[in-house]
Design a protein around this nucleic acid. Structure first.
Lengths: 205, 205
DNA sequence: TTCAGGTTTAATTAATTGGTCAATAAATAG
DNA sequence: CTATTTATTGACCAATTAATTAAACCTGAA
């Protein structure tokens, strides 16, 4: 079941439109126009708006989790791992500006979609990563390298927060602080260092 | 122009529905049903969906800015101010779970709505707060209490990130980490301390 | 060449949904 | 008590939009 060119064009456009406008805000006609195909093609290949959306959503999640997984599983000390994670997150979500908003939004509006995708408790992101990081933290604590109060879940939440929130509220930030697109990119790139530093400072003993 | 009971009921329900489903996702009928009034009343009092939305949006922004403003302007040292800000943000947005999502979403999809509300560059949140925090930071740096690399904008962004992101992705967090509502509240309450500590640690010299 | 399969199109349908309106009820003023 | 304004209702309209369908169009195999 190789994807036809039309199918691919539709998916690309659907992604673009759904990312920006969400499930309810998106219009099938707009997706068709953007893809340069007849609207009926969307139904021909994907049956319904919801099905098309689900495909896009699934692909969006799958574009993220393996990348994160790799960083978490790489064989490096905690500091480097944190630095890599920060860099990865910022790069990934800066290059796809609406992605973080899209995932967080649609997921908080339709929590049931979570199970089909992210949550593979056995060997998915959560099941594998939390214990691993926990263990790695334990080692560093014993070495006296970091504060013994640090919880892995909390650490990850903090890193995600510091990386994703500014991207999710990019529009607001840019408007309020009056910075253009180019400067925003520089700001976020610089943030790779400052966030890493911020996090490392915060877990020092 | 005192608000009639019906008008209030509509606004309460509109808030509830718009917060959860956004401008496009919300249905006038659903708002009417929730308020227990005839759909025509929504138009009678607010003309159009967009107008009703704008009212809700305006009120939502105005429920936040004064509170933040107070914390920023209070006469206390930086540490206390940070602790208060963190506590305030978490309390405020935990009590209105969809508020942060609502504001960030709708604002990133309709950036033009920003100007009418948040952005009073003369004496609004941004115009007053940034210089003030900057100045306060300068004092602390000279006293040698904090790291001289800290930028006020960045500090605020970090605090906001750490407080708001977990609330915005609450659903996801709860599902992935498998915690119920009650435990989530405890988690976020404990976070008032850990985030404050995290931030303070990170700006130490 | 022809036929069969999938593909594409334009036109149409059906459902949803924001918005209106005329009739009615309730409240208020005179 | 009556007249007038204000509030409320249910039925309806118009526009939008997802979905369907039937016919046309390829394309490659026989």
């Amino acid at each position: 079941m190789k994807k036809t060119p039309t199918e691919v064009k539709i998916l690309v456009s659907a992604k673009k439109v759904f990312y920006q406008k969400g499930l309810k805000g998106a219009r099938m006609q707009e997706i068709a126009d953007d893809a340069g195909v007849n609207k009926a093609m969307l139904h021909y290949y994907f049956r319904s708006k919801e099905k098309l959306f689900d495909k896009v959503f699934e692909e969006s999640v799958q574009s993220v989790t393996p990348v994160l997984m790799n960083v978490f599983l790489e064989d490096s000390d905690l500091n480097t791992k944190i630095a890599h994670l920060v860099e990865m997150l910022i790069d990934l979500f800066m290059n796809e500006p609406y992605l973080s908003n899209f995932i967080v939004n649609e997921l908080s509006q339709n929590p049931e979609k979570l199970f089909l995708n992210v949550l593979d408790l056995e060997d998915g992101l959560i099941g594998k990563v939390i214990p691993l990081i926990n263990q790695q933290l334990q080692v560093e604590i014993e070495k006296g390298n970091i504060n013994s109060e640090i919880r892995s879940a909390e650490l990850i939440v903090n890193i995600m927060s510091l990386c994703l929130f500014p991207i999710m509220s990019q529009t607001v930030l840019q408007k309020t602080l009056g910075i253009d697109d180019e400067r925003m990119i520089r700001f976020m790139n610089k943030r790779k260092q400052t966030v890493t530093q911020f996090v490392l400072d915060a877990i020092k003993p």
